[in-house]
Design a protein around this nucleic acid. Sequence first.
DNA 1: GTCTATAGCTGGATAGAC
DNA 2: GTCTATCCAGCTATAGAC
Lengths: 202, 202
Amino acid sequence: MARTADPERAAARRDAIMRAAIALFAEQGFESTSAAEIAKAAGLSSGSVFYYFADKRAVFRALFERDLPAARELVARHATGDDPVASLLAMVDVLAADAMDPLAPGIMVELVRQVGKDPELARLITETAATQHAGFAALVERGIRAGSIDPALDPGEAAQWIQVAIDGAFLNADPDHDPRPMLRRMITRFLSRPCDHAGDHA
Amino acid sequence: MARTADPERAAARRDAIMRAAIALFAEQGFESTSAAEIAKAAGLSSGSVFYYFADKRAVFRALFERDLPAARELVARHATGDDPVASLLAMVDVLAADAMDPLAPGIMVELVRQVGKDPELARLITETAATQHAGFAALVERGIRAGSIDPALDPGEAAQWIQVAIDGAFLNADPDHDPRPMLRRMITRFLSRPCDHAGDHA
DNA sequence: GTCTATAGCTGGATAGAC
DNA sequence: GTCTATCCAGCTATAGAC
C-alpha cells in the first residue's frame, strides 16, 4: 500500500540533501550554491533534488521547518516556573547553544536575506520569532510582578532586546568560545531593577 | 592637463552608481542585483558601470571604503575624555545611528556574506572592526582603572560584546524606533560594577 | 567618455530513458 | 524512483561605434 517503494530510503535521501544544503548555503550563500552542487555533495544526481523538493527555495525552507514546533515546545516548557528570570535565562541558553556552530553566522545571514524573498519562509520565521517573543514577554511581565525585573521596562520591548542580543551572538559566533556566560550577564543586568549606587567609588 | 574632461561630472556619476547600488544590494542582495539594474537606476547604460569600476565587486567594496577613516577619526575623537564610560557611550551612539536606516539590515547581512568571498573587502572590514574594538577596549580599561567599570571584565572581551550588541541592533533595525536608549541601557549595565542587592524585594 | 551590441558562460528546471 | 541530457534565461564583462 505504500506509495513509495522504500519510504525509509526516501527519507534518508531527503535528509542527505538537507544536510549537504545547509553546509553549502552557510558557506557560499543560497544564490551561489547550485542544485547540482547540493546533489553532488549528497551523493545524488542533479535532477534528484527536484524530485524530493519542488525547487531550490523549498530545500532552504525545509531547513527551518522544525524550528516553529521547537519554539512552541521551548516556550511551553519554561512558561511555568517559580523564578521567571531563571526560566528566561534557561530559554536564552537553549537558543544561544547553536551559536557555537561554525555554520551559524552564514545560515543566519542567509536566512535574513531569503526571508525577504520567500513569503512562505517569511511566515514561518515570523511565527517562530513571535512565539519566542511572546514567551520572553510573558516571563518579563511575571518578573516585574514578582519584583525581580525593573518595572520601568515594557515587556514587549524588553523581549525584543533579548532577541537582539541573541541575534548578535549568532552573527559573531565563534566555535571556540561559548557566548552564553556573557549573554547571561548582559541580559540579567539589562532586566534588573536599577541599582542606586551604580557608578559609586568616590 | 586634466586626464578626464570633466572630473566633477565623473565623480557625480560614480556617486550615482554607488547610491543606486547600495539600495539595490540592500533590498535584493549582491548576487541578485545585476550590473544592468544598477546602471538603469543610476540613469546610465549597462556598460558604464564597468568604466567607473573594475567589476561588480568593486562597486560593493567602494560602499565601505569611507568606514575605516571614519572609525579612526571616531576613536581618536573619544580617546581622551574625563569620563571613559561617557566617551564609550558616545561612540556607541554614533555607530548605532545608522541602525535606523531601513537599508541597514540588508546591507549588514550582505556585508557578512561578501566578506567571506572578497579578501580585499575582508581586509578593509577587519581593520575597521579592529579599530573600533581597540577604541572600546582602551576605554573599558580606563574605566576599570577609574573604578567606574567592573574590574572582573576582560577589556577585549567586553569590547567585543559591545560590538555584538550594536550588530544585533543593526540586524533588527526599525526606521520608526531609535535603538539607542535601550542600547545604552544594555551596555551601561553590562559594564557596571556588580550591584550587591540585585534581585531584592522580599 | 559613454553607449550598444554581443560573446561566452552558468544554472534552474524539465523531459524522457531506464 | 532516479539519472542523463538539455533547453532556455539571464548574467558579467568586453569590443567597438560614436
